[in-house]
Design a protein around this nucleic acid. Structure first.
Length: 590
DNA sequence: TAGAATCGCCAC
DNA sequence: AAACGTGGCGATTCTA
């Protein structure tokens, strides 16, 4: 690639003229080089700003936060558009080290993800994206060089070219997004970047002592369970120690556990939970085994490892978010995944508001069923939400033609199974197993359900057929998922029909949620000036906000109103409900 | 011996 | 009893 014209900026008097040139630009490329990946433990070295034909490279070791402040309004404004590849990374460093909010972004990484529409094989680093959309090759080797010392011409050339390439990349990706009707979805994604940057920087507070106590009590119970199981199962062992004692089996090995059970006369093909559940009533040892599994799982997945992830600088957990974590648009979090902390009081109560703060925990009530009602226009299902009654009880009443107060617990369970199952494309066999009923019973229940909600039936069928015919699905915002499933293969056809039903619903829930995050970030801005309210967790349909106690009540109202306002942008027929509580810990009726 | 594949299970 | 969608992740087992 041809060398880029760049200017290394190390003096304060160079900032104002630079700001003037940037201010009149429609679009600028932006990139950073840092001494590491964690903004709390590494430094921001370079900030590159690309204009057509020119790249300014700011040496952040030479200039103070105060001296760079004139750049801040540009970074936060809608214009110029800041083009970055994975702006979340740059945005975290800008926010933490320079106090700048990054907004008004076009993210080429997110754009590439949207355009690939769920392809698992596409890569989305800058190098493959440039290759795919500009048909050019770039060299990323200098990325991992040492950015903390004196800079070589090669490093500066790399820094400049990485920022410069973003401008032509923007042109091409913008055009492709337009052609694919993805500009609305792209704006949803770009708009919530600022909040996702906040989510990662804010992190969550974990009560370490409480967590340690939880681990300790589980470990001691596990020791007892383990001894009991070894005594019972080792008789089945084929291995013996040098002293003739039975070799203990590895209870974490499904194969060894299966063999041991078979030796005890308990015939099993595998040892998955549902299968062991079936055996537990007749075999106390299996129940104990299940308890061991549970403890073992929790201790390994939610034990000391979580404590090790606490950031030494902030003392908090800072998960990484993949903003487009699935083709439906759902976010995922990792290191740790706060989205899979067990939903029990002992775990959730460890996630607490720090002193002087409260947690506002808010989630959408039945959001996916409401989306289904809105999409299908089914009068009875819409009516169920209008009446505001317990949905599953209402569904049972609709199915069985009974008044609400005559619905039995079992009938409500049936209705609940259907409400949850059908949006996932469940069939009669699946429902039968879930409800512990016969396939005939399940079939008849589904018939009753669809008789009560006929437009739901037709919408689901049309969605399945559309997936088969077109090989793709879209959400309310236009988010696209192109299915890589072969409709000529019976198994893949069935999977295609299931995902065809679910994708528009789950994906629209993502649209609504992400829009809500954006709106809430904006609403909280006036509090954020004082660092008094911040979003600290986001789990598919639930938001957790940490707020200073004096403003918590006001923030609670804001959170609920904002989430409702977002849903209204996408749903026309159905009202959504938000359950919200203000508490000390991450607890609520959900 | 490192990485892939598999089993299994946590969340919404 | 692989057929209920989306994910992350840990332990074991397989494989190059």
């Amino acid at each position: 690639m041809e060398p880029h014209r760049y200017r290394l900026i190390t003096r304060e008097d160079e900032i104002a003229p630079l700001v003037e040139r940037l201010r009149v630009a429609a679009v600028i490329g932006i990139d950073t080089e840092t001494t590491g990946l964690d903004p709390f433990q590494s430094r921001l070295r370079l900030l590159q700003l690309a204009l057509p034909g020119e790249v300014a490279i700011i040496d952040c070791f030479e200039l103070t936060r105060e001296q760079l402040r004139p750049l801040a309004p540009l970074m936060a404004a809608p214009r110029p558009i800041k083009v970055a590849h994975n702006a979340k990374f740059d945005g975290k460093f800008l926010r933490h080290h320079l106090g700048m909010v990054l907004d008004g972004v076009f993210d080429t990484y997110l754009a590439s993800l949207l355009l690939s529409a769920g392809s698992e094989t596409d890569r989305h680093g800058l190098e493959p994206v440039v290759a795919r959309y500009l048909n050019r090759s770039i060299d990323k080797q200098a990325q991992r060089s040492d950015w903390s010392g004196s800079l070589t011409p090669a490093q500066l050339e790399y820094a400049a070219s990485d920022a410069a390439i973003l401008l032509p990349l923007y042109d091409v990706l913008h055009e492709w997004l337009g052609k694919a009707d993805l500009l609305v979805t792209a704006d949803i994604e770009f708009d919530c970047l600022r909040a996702v940057i906040g989510l990662e920087l804010n992190g969550v507070h974990l009560d370490v002592e409480r967590w340690r106590g939880l681990i300790a009590s589980m470990r001691s119970e596990q020791a007892g369970v383990e001894a009991e199981l070894q005594a019972a199962l080792s008789g089945a062992a084929r291995q013996f120690t040098l002293f003739g004692d039975p070799e203990p089996i590895n209870l974490d090995s499904p194969a060894q556990v299966r063999d041991a059970l078979v030796h005890l006369g308990i015939e099993v093909d595998d040892t998955r939970e549902w299968r062991l559940q079936r055996l537990a009533p007749d075999h106390p040892i299996v129940a104990t085994l299940l308890r061991h599994r549970h403890l073992s799982k929790n201790l390994s997945a939610f034990g000391d490892n979580i404590l090790e992830m606490i950031n030494p600088v902030t003392g908090r957990l800072h998960p990484e978010y993949r903003q487009i974590g699935s083709p439906t648009g759902r976010m995922t979090s990792s290191s740790p995944s706060l989205q899979q902390i067990p939903h029990t009081t002992e775990y959730r109560s460890c996630f607490r508001a720090p002193a002087g703060c409260q947690l506002i925990v808010a989630d959408y009530s039945q959001i996916e069923m409401r989306i289904l009602a809105d999409f299908s226009r089914d009068e009875a299902l819409l009516g169920a939400f209008d009446r505001g009654a317990d949905l599953h009880r209402q569904t049972a009443a609709d199915m069985f033609g009974l008044p609400l107060d005559q619905i039995t617990q079992r009938q409500r369970e049936y209705a609940k199974g259907l409400n949850y199952g059908l949006i996932y494309g469940m069939g009669a066999e699946g429902l039968a197993s879930r409800l512990d009923a016969s396939v005939a019973e399940a079939t008849s229940l589904i018939e009753r359900y669809f008789a009560a909600y006929p437009r739901v039936a037709s919408w689901l069928e049309e969605a399945a057929q559309r997936a088969v015919d077109e090989g793709k699905a879209r959400t309310a915002s236009g988010r696209l998922w192109i299915f890589r499933l072969d409709p000529h293969d019976p198994q893949q056809l069935a999977a295609l029909r299931r995902v065809g039903k679910n994708a528009p619903i789950q994906g629209t829930a993502s649209d609504i949620f992400k829009r809500a995050i954006r709106l809430l970030e904006e609403s909280l801005q006036r509090f954020n000036a004082g660092q008094d309210a911040r979003i600290v967790n986001a789990i598919h349909d639930e938001l957790v906000v940490e707020a200073a106690t004096p403003i918590a009540a006001e923030v609670e109202q804001l959170v609920a109103q904002t989430m409702i306002a977002s849903a209204r942008e996408f749903l026309t027929r159905v009202e959504v409900e938000v359950d919200v509580v203000t508490t000390d810990a991450w607890l609520k009726g959900k």
